[in-house]
């Protein structure tokens, strides 16, 4: 009896396991990336798998154009869905095909802004297109450069955004992440 009650009492100082620590740190990076658009936050591990672990489960519909990542996503129990039905999309925006998928991503509506998808893509930071960002999370304005992205991406984002409808983007470069919420206005310089 004593042994049983000992088992049921949690350890005096709970310690997160590796999965919990990783997903917590990943979310914290994503949260600050979205709260302060344009700032570079650090993920605990490179690549998109960490985001999948932290955000995606069987309640999600995920579109993924990378077959390796698709298998990882399927393992979480998420439904693999076409781009037009996805709430999370992991896209390769370095090619025109990715842009075609982005064109179909749900943006939600003024009635249900939370139906707008979360889009994750790789990019190269500090090179390529110069962008000026203004909006919530930015005191005045901030300039960033994002490379390795297909031309026409920013025009498509502008065309599909009708605040509060829109999609929210995370760009990943190694262990670095930049967030661009739908509330951010982007000026292509």
């Amino acid at each position: 009896m004593a042994a049983l009650s000992q088992n049921l009492v949690p350890a005096s100082v709970p310690v997160p396991d590796a999965f919990e620590a990783r997903t917590n740190a990943t979310f914290e990076a994503l949260m600050w990336a979205l709260s302060r658009p344009g700032t570079v936050q650090t993920l605990p591990a490179p690549g998109m798998t960490g985001l999948v672990e932290a955000l995606v489960d069987r309640e999600c519909k995920v579109f993924c154009d990378d077959p390796d990542l698709s298998r990882f996503v399927a393992f979480t129990g998420a439904t693999l869905a076409p781009a037009a039905a996805a709430d999370h999309a992991f896209l390769g925006l370095d090619r025109a095909e990715g842009l075609a998928h982005l064109e179909q991503i749900p943006v939600g509506s003024a009635l249900y802004p939370d139906d707008g998808a979360t889009v994750v893509a790789f990019a190269r930071f500090g090179e390529g297109q110069r962008l000026r960002l203004i909006g919530p999370g930015i005191e005045t304005s901030v300039e960033i450069t994002l490379g390795g992205l297909v031309p026409g991406l920013w025009a498509l984002r502008a065309a599909r955004s009708c605040y509060p409808a829109g999609f929210d983007m995370f760009f990943i470069c190694g262990t670095s992440v930049i967030g661009l919420p739908r509330s951010t206005l982007i000026e292509v310089l």
Binding site: M31, S35, G116, Y163
Partner: peptide
């Protein structure tokens, strides 16, 4: 929480 941040 991410969606809440995106649409303040």
């Amino acid at each position: 929480m991410l969606k809440a941040i995106a649409v303040p």
